[in-house]
Each structure stands twice: as C-alpha cells, then as structure tokens.
Amino acid sequence: MSTFETRLAELGVTLPDAPAPAANYVPSVITGDTVYISGQISQNPDGSFITGKVGADLSVEEGAAAAQTCAISLLAQVKAACGGDLDRLVRVVKLVGFVNSHGDFTEQPKVINGASDFLVEALGDAGKHARSAVSAGALPFNVAVEIEGIFQIKP
C-alpha cells in the first residue's frame, strides 16, 4: 500500500476503481510530469449520483461532502493513470470546481473547500493547490458538483 493510501486508510477512505468516462473522452492525459484528470462528478460509494442545486436542494455542508467525493474520484483517476502506484503523485497543482447552483448563490468556495480540505488532510503539503470555484446553472445528470484536476507526478 502506498504512503498516500496508508494515510487515506487512516482517514477511513479506500479509493474506488477509477470511474469510467461517460462520453467520448479519456479520463486522464499525461504529458511529461503532469497528469490532467477529466471532471469527476459527485457520487456515492454505490455509484449513485449526488444531485441537486446547492443552496436550494442541498446545504453548503452537503455540497462540500459532495465535493469530497469528487476529490476521492480524482485520486482514483491519478492512481489509475500512474499504473496503480499512487506514490508517483508529487502534488496537486490545480482544481477547477463547478457547483450546480442558482445565480444568486455565492458560496461556491465553501462547497469546493470540501475537496480542498480533504486533499490537504490526506496528502499534507502535496495536497495544497491553486483553485477556481464557479457556479454552473446545470451539470451533467443534475449532479451537485464536478471537479477537474491537474497533478504533478513522477515520470
């Protein structure tokens, strides 16, 4: 078990299999020491989607929990891109988080903190990253949150 996976286990998290793409795209692209992970959507461990508009159907706290599920899927995709070796991960470089919300909702950063806080707790300094948190009028399958990421890895 990798060092990062040991820490995840201490937090009670086991990485799932990397989710398969839902359309005509690849889950990750590696160029040099950078891996780009396609947007990961909020879903429960059983694969069901976490849906609804944050601020209307879901609270900010529920949205943050949904964002954490996206972060877990991002790490699963990084592990898959690295041939199953999560210890190739050097750091999280950037996240772009989309929150399914109405135009008057302004707490997107608090929602995406669910992913950011989790990554720092799980990865330490390697989890600190640049980030954007934006509103989306709708997301695929009506999911609450979608997050894409850029990661530095060991070649």
Rank of each mutant, 00 (worst) to 15 (best):
F4V: 04
T6L: 15
R7K: 14
R7D: 09
E10D: 15
E10Y: 10
L11W: 10
G12Q: 14
G12Y: 09
V13Q: 10
T14C: 12
T14V: 15
P16G: 13
P16S: 13
P16K: 13
P16W: 06
D17S: 14
A20I: 04
P21H: 11
A22V: 07
N24D: 15
N24V: 08
N24C: 00
Y25R: 12
Y25P: 09
P27D: 14
V29R: 09
V29G: 01
I30W: 00
I30V: 09
G32Y: 01
D33K: 06
V35H: 03
Y36C: 00
I37F: 12
I37S: 09
I37E: 07
G39V: 05
Q43T: 13
N44H: 13
N44L: 10
D46P: 05
G47Q: 10
F49A: 14
I50H: 13
I50Y: 12
I50G: 06
T51V: 14
G52K: 08
K53G: 03
G55A: 10
A56F: 02
D57W: 01
D57H: 05
S59V: 07
V60R: 02
V60A: 08
G63E: 11
A64R: 10
A64D: 06
A65H: 00
A66Q: 08
Q68H: 02
Q68G: 03
Q68P: 00
T69Q: 05
C70M: 07
C70Q: 08
A71N: 08
I72R: 03
I72A: 11
L74R: 06
Q77I: 12
V78L: 08
K79C: 05
A81H: 10
A81F: 09
G83F: 06
G83M: 08
G83D: 04
G84V: 04
L86D: 04
L86S: 02
D87T: 06
D87F: 08
R88S: 01
R88E: 12
R88P: 05
L89P: 13
L89H: 09
R91I: 01
R91N: 14
R91E: 11
R91L: 03
V93N: 13
L95W: 11
L95H: 12
L95M: 11
G97M: 09
G97Q: 06
G97L: 06
V99I: 13
V99S: 09
S101K: 03
S101V: 02
F105T: 03
T106I: 11
E107Q: 13
Q108M: 08
P109Y: 05
P109A: 00
K110Y: 10
G114V: 08
A115M: 03
S116M: 08
D117L: 06
E121C: 00
E121L: 09
A122C: 01
G124F: 07
D125F: 12
A126N: 01
G127F: 01
H129I: 00
A130D: 15
A130N: 05
R131M: 08
A133T: 01
A133V: 01
G137F: 00
A138F: 07
N142D: 15
V143E: 14
V143W: 01
A144Q: 04
A144P: 05
V145G: 07
V145E: 13
Q152I: 00
Q152V: 03
I153W: 01
P155F: 03
P155M: 04
